[in-house]
Design a protein around this nucleic acid. Sequence first.
RNA 1: GGACAGGUGGGUGAGUUGGCUGAAACCACAUCCCUGCUAAGGAUGCGUACUGGUAACGGUACCGAGGGUUCGAAUCCCUCCCUGUCCGCCA
Length: 414
Amino acid sequence: MIDLKKLQNGFNETADKLRKKKIKEEVLKELQRLFVVLKEQRSELEKLQAQQNKKSKLFPLYLKEKKDISGLKKELEENKENISFKQKIVNEIEEELEIYALNIPNIPDDDVPIGKDENDNLEIKKVLEPRVFDFKAKEHWELGEDLEWIDFKRGVKLAKSRFSVLKNEAAKLERALINYMLDFNTDKGFKEVSVPYIVNKDSMTGTGQLPKFADDLFKIENEELYLIPTAEVPLTNLYRDEILNTEALPKLMCAYTACFRKEAGSAGRDTRGIIRQHQFDKVELVSITKPEQSDEVFDKMLQCASDLLTSLGLPHRLVLLCGGDLGFSAAKTVDLEVWLPGQNRYREISSVSNTRDFQARRAKIRYKDGKKNKLVHTLNGSSLAVGRTLIAIMENYQQADGSIQIPEVLKKYI
RNA sequence: GGACAGGUGGGUGAGUUGGCUGAAACCACAUCCCUGCUAAGGAUGCGUACUGGUAACGGUACCGAGGGUUCGAAUCCCUCCCUGUCCGCCA
């Protein structure tokens, strides 16, 4: 959630920055108006309540002195009506304000480039040279079917489209990758956590999936429960509604989970292969920091994910997302894109984001700064998407005879 | 899923014949004093959020959540959630 006080005190600045994310000024104007009205109405309500409290305290005194209380009672009965009337107004404004506020995305950092979509993203650097093939590199689905590594048909039979089954070495490789990634990240100082794959509405609201992106989530029937789209949700919400010890920060965490996404907006995209599935595995990093720590931790997480790719011998590049391509909760995001020789292009395999205090404000994650409670910063990043790493290994390590080599670092995990 | 018992501040835990309790006491924590040796004693402070005020200091709300009764609710009523114990079921 954006800072409403900031919006009020520096409206133009905030509106300018949110323009990068294509937010219309009228929406912000309305939000600001509601905020002002709410404050006025609430102040009036509180005055009435103060009156009621003060006068109610006279009752025991009157009774003691055997005074007549009927006049006082009548007065308070009337005031009570006023209070409940005003209370209703305040509640309505609060609800309306909340709907607005929860649907406004995070404010992009100043160094986020202006742009419409992924074409305006900024390449920061490339790591490792793509290998030169002396034969035509196949795409992963071709390899997957030839080697009986991926069973697309039966995945669909079991569930529906965008589900698949891994077999033979692929199944083993997936497990090896998860273990390797967890070990790699924990060696870098991220504490391993194992979390639920199903969370409640408050958690989804805390990290920003709800209320706006309900259509992207799998919901449990007849329950206010959802399948997680990323481990970012349970990891970040671990500390929802808490005030953390300053010494405990920064908290660096990592977790392996399955992730579930409806892929509502991506009909027709990546229908071939396992690039875009309803269920996929991911090892995720989440950090909770003091505000002044978050830039440093962001770099650390990014480096961690990049080093992981390098250790697997996978060529990749770092891309700074422009405002138009930035996610809802992120103030800044750098994507890692891995080279896929079969597709002959880079594809996203990780996304590292700093949400600043956006999620912290929603989820009420604070820390003690001296006497005051302040909002933390939260960051998340994949390290890495397991399925896409599997794809990258298949395509990059394929041999002329159609077989696939196993990266050196994974051999002991198989 | 069934029965019973509960959900109070960082922790333990009082308060349930409605008002003087936003909440005793103890512990923990912070600052100070005394004293000096591996300790002890004393003083003060110490929930969260919003809000008024330069500040001092005020106001409102919150005792699992949401409703209700009442002039007034942590205390009474309803619904939901959660925890514990026993039973049932089960990886």
